[in-house]
Design a protein around this nucleic acid. Sequence first.
DNA 1: AATGGGTGCAACCGCGGGTGG
DNA 2: CCCACCCGCGGTTGCACCCAT
Length: 279
Amino acid sequence: MGRPPPRCDQDGVKKGPWTPEEDIVLVSYIQEHGPGNWKAVPTNTGLIRCSKSCRLRWTNYLRPGIKRGNFTDQEEKLICHLQALLGNRWAAISSYLPERTDNDIKNYWNTHLKKKLRKLGTGNDRQTSSRLPSYRSVSKGQWERCLQTDIHMAKRALSEALSMEKSDDLLDSMASSAEGNFNIRPSTYASSTENISRLLEGWFRDSPKPGVASASSASGGSMSPEPLESLFGINESPAETRTPLSLLESWLFDESVGHGQESLPDMAPGDDACDQFMF
DNA sequence: AATGGGTGCAACCGCGGGTGG
DNA sequence: CCCACCCGCGGTTGCACCCAT
């Protein structure tokens, strides 16, 4: 339409895989200025990349706290159920898996889980595809029942996943990721980015800059490699550090505290919590 | 050892939302 | 109110790697 061509379309902008040198330049710049204001990044760093590419590289690969490698059973379960609940809203789903990027989850879903579910040939197929459109095609009462069913499933999955994670896998995975011990295919470049990530983790631990902390939360990603428990509010965490879905989270976990019979708790269309479902 | 198909993942593209002038 | 711009999201693509033959 009337939209001017994005900077990425300009001549002379480099595309394709990032080199370790470019990564270092980007990381050093973000160390100094914090993520955000991506438009300024190429001009200030001299990188011949568009701002979009810089942001993508940072959020999907360079930012600290990203866990790479195999997804655990709990993560798979969570993704399946959240996908059933939220549809292909990978950003929303990734907010429940702070160590995974939306791109990672999307890729994993498209390459592994879709296939897996299809192979299983269970009702999961129905849960996972086109659920949201089906909501729209039913009456309000039916829609609410469908929603309640899915929410119930999501609650169960979250509770199960957390209870299991708390005992074994999560702790292991967190420990390994904290040590930079990513289970990825060995490659020279991978190891160099791993080094960068490790470096950054150390940097975030040692000298948290206010600008960076605020920029990281503002950028929408859960930047800090904080434990899953804290993100779900199991360990008490200040409200300002919660993800945008914190209200939903706390409600989801109300069930694990007590009542098995659930209904939408005071959620009318227009409520914030309800809006999380009714995009 | 060579090769061709399959797979996984990083990166790109296009679009829409939000916002400031 | 309108427009231009930036940012973020979801879908898609391209390439490197893996594995079976």
